[in-house]
Design a protein around this nucleic acid. Structure first.
Lengths: 200, 200
DNA sequence: GTCTATAGCCGGATAGAC
DNA sequence: GTCTATCCGGCTATAGAC
């Protein structure tokens, strides 16, 4: 027979805390809230973590780890620079679309993250794919400001996802506009040909 | 002689609360925090507002009112469609850049806003400029998905501002990249000619 | 319109039994 | 590793004096 109560590991707790922090933010989640979803008492959390901030930081680290590897897949596309851009946008959009908790935490960290956390996020998660985008930018447009181009690519993808909750209240907003394929296609056309690439 | 203590009006309180909510969010600001910056005791706030949520909602309403009018200025530019796009991007970028509290509140509402608040934001603040962008899109690219194009214009401007705190930790990120003129110029070129419009 | 005082709850965190 | 019990401070909100 299995034991009636299964002891929780640190990572179990973190995995259950991540959705809470994503939905309500650091100040909006209490230790009791976390304990509730884990199925233990709040005091037991202090066996695993010295305090709430430490739990939060480790939850962030876990939510962001492996992301860099996920992004690396988006860079394996080969072919002409244009094909590679299209492939990258497609894979990156799908990836971000499928992991709403990661996206929400990213949004929250941009608002509330201190220097240390933003540095970690930039260097451990986004550095590699960002450099790949910059290299692609340099190939497509020699001499361009690669940083601005890479950021613009990310902007188009991520803001279309970020604004999903308000889209239906804006003129012309339909449910289909939140689909990763629709977004990726639109973004790719816009990047490659400007607005005139967006004709139907 | 002036009175030693100047009674505070509702709008005085709201104007002082707005920066707090922008910086720390609803859950991150207490009635005592607000009372502190106003220079009164927390209990006195309940003379002006029935509860914290009501204060917050009125602060949002005030932070967002007049914004639609501000945006209307961005639409007064005349000339060819391309000139008008360039003008709109320039004015909109400068406007959003100069009002960081509004931008932060917008970011927070996209994360935490309920249906009612998002509806208000969409209809009272962004509807007009959004429609203007859509009309411009239709002129520039007849038959395009005007909603997606308008959202992409906003994406490029707003995400460059939203990512300002992390930019310096990303490859190639410089302080100049956060300047409204640099962003507006980059975004305009990208929109009009795609990536190849971004050559230096 | 603001104050003091306080109710009542919920927050993070600790001590010590099992 | 989890529990019960508890401390204590901060929170929203109310009552009533000035």
């Amino acid at each position: 027979m299995t034991r009636p109560v299964k002891p929780k590991s640190k990572t179990d707790i973190l995995d259950l805390a991540i959705p809470l922090f994503a939905k309500s933010g650091y100040a909006g989640v209490s230790m009791r809230d976390i304990a509730n979803v884990v199925g233990i008492k709040a005091a037991s959390l202090y066996h695993h973590f010295p305090d709430k901030q430490s739990l939060y930081l480790q939850a962030m680290a876990r939510a962001f780890e492996d992301k860099a590897q996920g992004f690396a897949e988006a860079l394996t596309v080969t072919g002409t620079p244009k094909k590679r851009l299209a492939g990258f946008v497609q894979v990156f959009t799908t990836l971000m679309s499928k992991d709403p908790y990661f996206r929400l935490l990213l949004q929250r960290e941009l608002l509330d993250g201190d220097e240390q956390r933003l540095k970690l996020l930039a260097r451990e998660v986004f550095r590699e794919p960002f450099i790949a985008m910059e290299e692609l930018a340099e190939e497509l447009v020699p001499g361009c400001d690669t940083h601005m181009v890479a950021m613009s690519i990310a902007s188009l993808i991520l803001y279309h996802l970020e604004t999903a909750p308000i889209r239906r209240y804006l003129p012309g907003g339909k449910a289909k506009h939140n689909k990763p394929d629709v977004i990726a296609d639109h973004v790719t056309r816009l990047l490659l040909n400007g607005l005139k690439g967006c004709s139907q």
